[in-house]
């Protein structure tokens, strides 16, 4: 059942016709020609399709496009404004934080979103394992990722890398978190 929706993708307003069954991922890849987010599993199990959906990272493969009419979407292609690479993208290159590159746009969008989440004080499972107060409570201030690779690893575990560049992904993110 076709329906018309609009999306703001990487800063550009787009109108398109989708089937109610069309996921955001397929809307981007097959209807708008934006193949920056990748299809790895199509079931929210690998993270290759990660985009910023209204400012938050999300698996675009499990989001129905029709349910996100009017949404703002940023892909890894949109992080690189005006042709300049995002610092996270530069750091991934410098640390060789990928091999085949297929999970990479999702990893990078995820990492960029994670920096915001930590700055906003969002805890992770790891934050609770090492509470900073003696009463076991977890503070609500910003979480320092630069000095806690365990935090980065936990928060990035929704992005699988079969080439297994994890040992390079973590320092690539740490470097950006430090700056």
């Amino acid at each position: 059942m076709d329906t018309e929706i609009s999306l703001r993708v990487d800063g550009a307003e787009r109108r398109l016709t989708v089937d109610t069954r069309t996921t955001l991922l397929d809307a981007l890849r097959e209807r708008l020609g934006n193949t920056s987010p990748k299809k790895g599993c199509d079931h929210g199990q690998c993270g290759a399709c990660t985009v910023l959906l209204d400012g938050r990272r999300a698996n675009s493969c499990l989001a129905l496009a029709v349910a996100h009419d009017g949404a703002e979407i940023v892909t890894a292609a949109g992080l690189a404004a005006d042709g300049d690479l995002h610092p996270m993208q530069r750091s991934f290159i410098a640390h060789d934080a990928f091999q085949c590159g297929y999970c990479t746009p999702g990893q990078i969008v995820s990492a960029v979103a994670m920096l915001d989440e930590a700055a906003n004080g969002w805890p992770s499972a790891v934050t609770f394992e090492a509470p900073d107060g003696s009463d076991g409570a977890v503070g609500t201030g910003p979480v320092d990722l630069a000095t806690s690779p365990d935090e980065i690893r936990e928060r990035m575990s929704g992005n699988l890398c079969r080439c297994a560049a994890y040992a390079n992904i973590v320092p690539a993110i740490q470097e950006v978190a430090q700056s």
Partner: peptide, 27 residues
């Protein structure tokens, strides 16, 4: 050396097989 295709891959612009722009694709 940094890999030469890095700048394309980190933006998702390096085309993999399914992604080549083709006219009127069928599925």
């Amino acid at each position: 050396l940094d890999r030469f295709d890095g700048a394309d891959k980190v933006r998702g612009l390096a085309p993999y097989a399914y992604e080549h722009p083709v006219a009127r694709p069928a599925y």
